[in-house]
Nucleic acid binder design. Structure first.
Ligand SMILES: [Mn+2]
Ligand SMILES: [Mn+2]
Ligand SMILES: [Zn+2]
Ligand SMILES: [Zn+2]
Lengths: 140, 140
DNA sequence: TCCATAATTTGAACTCAATACAAATTTATA
DNA sequence: TATAAATTTGTATTGAGTTCAAATTATGGA
């Protein structure tokens, strides 16, 4: 928790109870949750918290570079507490988003064909390993 | 246009006037338009068309693999009339989405770490070449 | 401690792309 | 022509995310 306070202060964000609780959730859950999922859990610890505070805090985290928003599902934003760029796999069956370690030669580039790169995103969509195995079992 | 009819029929989609007009727009505009942009132009040719038909048609096109939805901006779906996987660059300043030709070694893979891949997406976000040049001019 | 100010949080109203759905229209088939 | 099937339409609805002013809390000097 002391670590999380430092992370916020280093990003020039005042570490309020609400922001710490939200960041703590993201720190414990690296499964790319939605704002709603974050709210539901944080609400059990801070019953008075509002959804607007969750959105406000996430926006702050994003603007200050300690959280990355993922626009993958098409229906809602998923939040990733990380700084390092990495790939994702989105399962169209169970909705889970997996981290993938891909040796991507573009990750080191800051410019590409004249464009200034601020973020890099690579992701695949399909059926995840777990869902494939379940499917195979059912067909027997 | 005859070509577009064939594309729809090959995808088992009945080539109605509305669907042809929508696909024709996508064929002429490879700038990854929104549903609203498509509707606005098609409406000038088919004044009676409804937005629901635009959404229905795009859904059909996606389900049958002749159009790819892009979840990049976070606010609305952009549509790409293409089959071949390629990279994109999204300009956070002007909102344009550029096609990028990147030699990506993963594009050939159908499986990755046990997951079944159906789609592959790679995109960068930042400031595009045009916006950078405009910015440079203004600062002088 | 008191008070003024700034920062943060809250909740209700609102936005808007996308969806649901039943009625209306068009097309296909006998 | 008559009937059924497919398609289109318009309205209502959804729901994630935003706006914004009021309420609350934190800050800092007198
Ligand atoms: Mn991740
Ligand atoms: Mn494209
Ligand atoms: Zn899955
Ligand atoms: Zn631009």
């Amino acid at each position: 928790m002391e670590n999380l306070i430092n992370i916020l202060e280093d990003a020039n964000i005042k570490p309020t109870i609400e922001r710490l609780s939200i960041l703590n959730y993201l720190d414990r859950n690296h499964n790319h949750p939605t704002a709603s999922m974050i709210f539901d859990e944080v609400e059990t610890k801070i019953p008075t918290i509002s959804k607007t505070t969750v959105y406000n805090s996430l926006k702050l985290f994003i603007e200050n570079g300690i959280v990355t928003p993922l626009y993958i599902t098409g229906s809602e934003i998923r939040y990733d507490f990380t700084t390092k760029p990495h790939h994702h796999f989105f399962c169209e069956n169970c909705g889970k988003i997996f981290d993938l370690v891909v040796d991507c030669p573009i990750f080191s580039k800051k410019h590409f064909q004249g464009h200034l790169i601020r973020q890099q995103h690579g992701y695949f969509r399909g059926i995840c390993k777990d869902c494939l195995e379940k499917e195979a079992k059912e067909h027997h």
